[in-house]
Nucleic acid binder design. Structure first.
Length: 424
RNA sequence: GUGGAUGUAGCUCAACCGGUAGAGCGCUUGAUUGUGGUUCAAGUGGUUGGGGGUUCAAGUCCCCUCAUCCACCCCA
């Protein structure tokens, strides 16, 4: 390698170059538009939080808290953490700013970078982008439905068609405890059929055994008791309303008994949307209800529900229609023929921008030929040319690459002419 | 944290059984005077990820290391 000691991105982190960054911007703009349509408002919380917020919020038993956090001490010895997820910070903000005194429920959305120290892989980075939304303060199932419908609307707006919506209910904490006990009773006698990971989880978090990928364990679990069979009446009714309403709104979903999520705060409704076009990390979004989280953080018993979209994964499988609308450079390129017209070229480009026409100026070109070649490669369709002749005649040349035609127009009319040609 | 694969020019790749690197794309310039895309020509570009070893000789074999990718795990 020519430059062996050149700096590069840190492991698990990446640069988004113009093409990719354009797709991200497109996705974010769509999210803002659709979520705003549903009455959600954007919030931005800090990237760094008190470590304890995640320990308490996400759960000590979770893998995230256990081994994936970027945690460090600041100069005063406070333990801080780069946020690994977005719900706990929003819940914190809800309490800190007493949003309980706002009209309930509070509906917010947010987007930005998150950090998890994991081994990078397809669709998994140490810094990744999430777009999330939360509804805090309504315990009812209709909020679940509206949130899911909004999500589908958003994906539809981006041109997605064949996505799998998985749905389940993990019940309230009493149901979960009851179920954990049953599952343990069922699996304990078959302990030696389980892998090391699952055996460990048998003690710590039996529910997580459900989403194992090991074929042998999956077969074993077919005979296991179902989570939804032990749901208490309130959780069961909640889930029934959610399912019924989703059907009413034409949302195609699949009930997935094995769908349990890794963050400890989830209760009742949980969901996940996957894409077959991704690799092993096929979840492009996941979420659920967290009726106990705010209480866990020291607040009142306020229920909530939300989701997080893995923007990197979403962009990976973004339909071409959305991708094309992203990118795009300026359609007009202003070239000076020879150095004598540089100042005029600069001025002409500025005239266009003042008139709201995106223009790129080609000021570094050597020959006119080189300038035209660059304009073409940059994807510009029109070129405005000025040289000594044009300055003398007070005109500019407007060339149309697509039709290989050009016209000479008076300088004081060129902006209007360019606008007319572009919109034609 | 565990396992597998791969590291040769800015990018995508080639180099038979070890004989001191090559193509395409890109970039720059030119094909008469101020006109792109196609074509043609020339130029640019590499201590073969790094270190050590074996050998007369290593991109090629061995060891170490680093990085990337994929999977487990985890989850968005």
């Amino acid at each position: 390698m020519a430059a062996k000691r050149r700096f590069r991105t840190v492991k698990g982190m990446r640069d988004l170059l113009p093409g990719e960054a354009g797709a991200f911007a497109q996705v974010e703009a769509t999210a803002r538009r659709v979520f705003t349509l549903y009455g959600y408002r954007e919030v931005r919380t800090p990237v760094v939080e008190d470590t304890d917020l995640f320990v308490r919020g996400v759960g000590e038993g979770s893998e995230i808290v256990g081994k994936q956090m970027y945690t460090f001490d600041d100069k005063k010895g406070r333990s801080l953490t780069l946020r690994p997820e977005g719900t706990a910070p929003v819940a914190r903000a809800y309490l800190q700013h007493d949003m309980a005194s706002w009209p309930q429920p509070v509906k917010v959305f947010y987007m930005g970078p998150y950090f998890r120290y994991e081994r990078p892989q397809a669709g998994r980075y140490r810094q990744f982008s999430q777009i999330g939304a939360e509804v805090i303060g309504d315990p009812g199932p209709y909020s679940d439905v509206e949130l899911l419908v909004m999500l589908l609307r958003f994906l539809e707006a981006l041109g997605f068609e064949d996505l799998e919506v998985g749905l389940n209910s993990v019940g309230d904490s009493e149901c979960r405890q009851r179920y954990s006990r049953r599952l343990r009773e069922f699996l304990e006698p078959r302990r030696d059929e389980l892998g090391a990971d699952s055996r460990r989880r048998l003690e710590t978090n039996p529910l997580r055994i459900l989403d194992t990928k090991a074929p042998g364990e999956r077969r074993l679990l077919e005979a296991a008791p179902h989570l939804r069979e032990v749901l208490g009446a309130p959780a069961r009714e909640h889930f029934q309303v959610v399912c019924g309403q989703l059907e009413r709104f034409g949302v195609a979903y699949r009930i997935d008994d094995r769908l349990v999520r890794g963050l400890d705060y989830y209760t009742r409704t949980v969901f996940e949307i996957t894409s077959g076009a991704l690799g092993a990390q096929d979840a492009i979004l996941g979420g659920g209800r967290y009726d106990g989280l705010i209480g866990e953080l020291g607040g009142p018993a306020v229920p909530g529900i939300g989701f997080a979209i893995g923007e990197d994964r979403l962009v990976d499988v973004l339909p071409d229609s959305s991708r094309l609308r992203a990118g795009r450079t300026a359609p007009v390129c202003v070239i000076s023929v020879g150095p004598a017209a540089l100042d005029v070229a600069l001025e002409l480009a500025e005239d266009l921008r003042v008139a709201d026409v995106a223009a790129i100026s080609e000021l570094a070109a050597g020959s006119l030929k080189a300038g035209l070649r660059k304009a073409g490669r940059r994807g510009c369709r029109w070129v405005v040319l000025v040289g000594e002749d044009e300055i003398a005649a007070d005109t500019v040349v407007l060339r149309d690459f697509e039709n290989s035609t050009q016209e000479t127009v008076p300088r004081d009319e060129f902006v209007a002419t360019v606008k007319a040609r572009i919109s034609a």
